[in-house]
Nucleic acid binder design. Structure first.
Lengths: 163, 163
DNA sequence: CTCGGATCGTCTGGACTCGGATGATTGTGT
DNA sequence: ACACAATCATCCGAGTCCAGACGATCCGAG
């Protein structure tokens, strides 16, 4: 997630978006890069590796028991990549991997008390980061933006049906 | 650009976006993934490797003479990564690298006639792909979306000024 | 003219990602 | 009880990306 961006690109991305003001793809990329840079920055400041680390914590925070596989689907991270994230979080003692006694194949990652604290602290930093990215956008425009993005993202059409 | 996504993730991403309908970062990611999948699909169908390949062609299509370094900034691709893109395009004879006679360090990539044809053909496929991604969004909402994204992407605020 | 620093494109090393293979464990049919 | 397919986490290999190093070339100071 975050590691695909690098702060040195920020200016270039803005310039790029300015050069193609009508291209949806480019604007989306530039926008996601900008937001992610803010988030990664905030994450790094408080000891997290990535915004992705926080995303995993967020998914675990509701206390619901999830398989690693299920978790990987929820946070949209490849199951193999999730392993390294969980390893890191476990090393920081923000989560623990418990073995499901009813099926000893599966591991149930669970957030620890320290993890909960980290999540809570990051929440405010995260809001600030998003607010900074949304600087020049009014409240109702933000809501509209979320709606539109949601419609693009969750549209039911798939490649298979239209190819 | 495109290679960071994989079609198998499409459903998972949509599910993920649905799970966090108020999170800007996630929605942006999901949206950009969806659009990029379409574009990469269209690119692959006509012999291009990536949507990024097309982006490079687009930047060269205006005939303006550009250094590889300048070009890398315009299309937001790292200069070292751009090399492999140009190598590929040159192998397909869609571009040529000419040496600037006034400065023999610099190479001026230039689009060929075949490259121009490829660009023109891809333009329609690209429009179709974007239109498909923007299926349930009205015309004026599209314009608004582009404006908002543009404002996020090109905001003048930087990390340095706010840290 | 020449020397030193800056700038171009390219190469290299380390890190990351993901598809597919592997080992452990489960349930199911017989 | 036992073979066997299915499923979970993990590991491995191939591919990609980028920071930094490098050679080639340019330019300005002396």
């Amino acid at each position: 997630m975050g590691s695909s961006l690098h702060e040195s690109e920020t200016q270039a991305l803005a310039a790029c978006a300015a050069a193609y003001p009508a291209d949806l793809t480019i604007l989306l990329h530039a926008a996601v890069n900008r937001v992610t840079i803010y988030l990664d920055h905030a994450a790094a400041e408080m000891g997290l590796n990535d915004a992705r680390d926080w995303l995993v914590l967020a998914a675990l925070e509701d206390g619901q028991q999830r398989t690693q596989l299920e978790l990987s689907r929820v946070v949209c991270v490849d199951k193999t990549t999730l392993i390294t994230v969980l390893d890191r979080l476990e090393r920081q003692e923000l989560i623990v991997r418990t073995v499901d006694p009813s099926d000893r194949r599966v591991r149930i990652p669970q957030i620890t008390e320290a993890g909960r604290r980290m999540f809570a602290t990051f929440a405010t930093a995260r809001d600030a980061a998003e607010a900074r990215a949304l600087d020049g956008v009014s409240k109702e425009d933000r809501d509209l933006l979320l709606t539109l993005l949601g419609r693009i993202a969750t549209d039911t059409d798939t490649l298979a049906t239209s190819a």
